[in-house]
């Protein structure tokens, strides 16, 4: 408690003198003298949604948003498909299973994932009630639901509540995300608004924007996928 008080006291003492605004250090002295002292109140409406007009432009309507998500996916090397119905997911994942030789699947029970994960005809490790990390480590693919897809950045928003915990979406070498059309939102401000509306004060302990497969450029700034997290990210929407 004492360090807390000491630090807060130092902060309060320091803040008794008001600061120069960033970008104003080069201004002629008169304008600085005229600058009003710092208000202790946050200017109303300065955030909340207003950011959309600075960020990259996105369209409206499912088709435009899906096109934006597809364009971002191409750059990020996410494998993105819009399907007619959930049977399309079985076919697509069946082909991936054969091509990559999947032996073990990990998933969590959710209206979207349960049936699809079982349709692969492989042993499934269900994570929602706890699991052995060593077993998850041996799985070839993690199939999860998500909260939202963000068209602007090609991101998948998962939480520990929506995607079977913290590790399922990041430990297996292939992450498959299943989503419904109405989960696709235009941009980050809208994504965060929906998140707040969905959980209110009861946020899951982990919330993650996943943007493309795991990547690194740490060796000579050359892009390598699958550094620690999944090398492949597949997103299916219907």
């Amino acid at each position: 408690m004492s360090e807390r008080n000491a630090i807060l006291a130092r902060i309060r003492e320091a803040l008794r003198v008001s600061a120069t605004r960033p970008g104003a250090h080069a201004a002629p002295p008169t304008s600085r003298a005229a600058a009003a002292p710092v208000s202790r109140d946050r200017p109303a409406g300065s955030s909340a949604g207003g950011f959309a007009r600075w960020l990259p432009r996105v369209g409206a309507g499912f088709d435009e948003l899906a096109a934006a998500f597809a364009a971002a996916s191409k750059e990020l090397r996410t494998d993105f498909h819009v399907l007619e119905h959930d049977a399309g997911a079985d076919t697509l994942l069946g082909a991936l299973r054969d091509a990559q030789g999947w032996q073990r699947v990990a998933s969590h029970r959710d209206p979207l994932t349960t049936r699809v994960a079982e349709s692969l005809g492989l042993p499934v490790l269900w994570t929602e009630d706890g699991y052995d990390p060593l077993e998850l480590e041996r799985c070839d693919v993690g199939i999860t639901a998500c909260d939202l897809l963000v068209a602007q950045t090609g991101s998948v928003l998962v939480t520990s509540a929506s995607a079977g915990g913290r590790a399922l979406s990041v430990l297996p070498p292939h992450h498959v995300v299943l989503a419904r059309r109405e989960q696709l939102v235009p941009d980050l401000p809208e994504g965060l608004r929906r998140l707040q509306a969905k959980y209110g004060e009861q946020y899951p302990s982990m919330i993650s924007f996943i943007t493309g497969p795991s990547r690194t450029g740490d060796i000579e700034r050359i892009l390598v996928l699958g550094a620690h997290g999944p090398k492949h990210l597949t997103v299916l929407v219907w």
Binding site: A72, P204, S205, M206, S208, F209, S214, G229
Partner: peptide
Amino acid sequence: LLSGYNTLYGGPR
């Protein structure tokens, strides 16, 4: 445009 993982943590399990 956005880094690979942007993750928020608000508590333990």
